[in-house]
């Protein structure tokens, strides 16, 4: 049976101290090839010091139709933010 090369997601750390960020996708047959391809495709302008690859099918994504129940309840929890608390002006830094 004919099988196409699966899709992989590529995450690159631009420099130490920064997180890996999603850079894009590519096709590869296995993790070794995915890393090599990622190196050639996404870091050819010296963009990275570390690469993660993961086959796209292993990513579980939240469903946008559930965004209401997932994310909206957090909107009203204003007390999690520093601006919620009223402090005297004399207090310069806190």
């Amino acid at each position: 049976m004919k099988k196409d090369w699966p899709l992989w997601e590529v995450f690159v750390r631009s420099k130490n101290g920064l997180e890996h960020r999603h850079f894009g996708s590519l096709h590869a047959t296995d993790a070794v090839m995915a890393l090599e391809n990622a190196r050639d495709v996404y870091t050819r302008r010296n963009e990275g010091v570390s690469i993660w690859v993961v086959e796209s099918k292993y990513i579980t994504a939240s469903n946008p139709s559930e965004n209401g129940e997932l994310f909206e309840p957090a909107k009203s929890k204003v007390y999690r933010h520093p601006t919620f608390y009223k402090l005297p002006d004399e207090l310069k830094h806190m």
């Binding site: 590519l26 096709h27 590869a28 090839m33 090599e36 391809n37 050639d40 495709v41």
Partner: peptide, 11 residues
């Protein structure tokens, strides 16, 4: 054979 190999061989 694939864009990925074109890019790699060009490198």
């Amino acid at each position: 054979p694939a864009l990925e190999t074109d890019i790699a061989l060009t490198n």
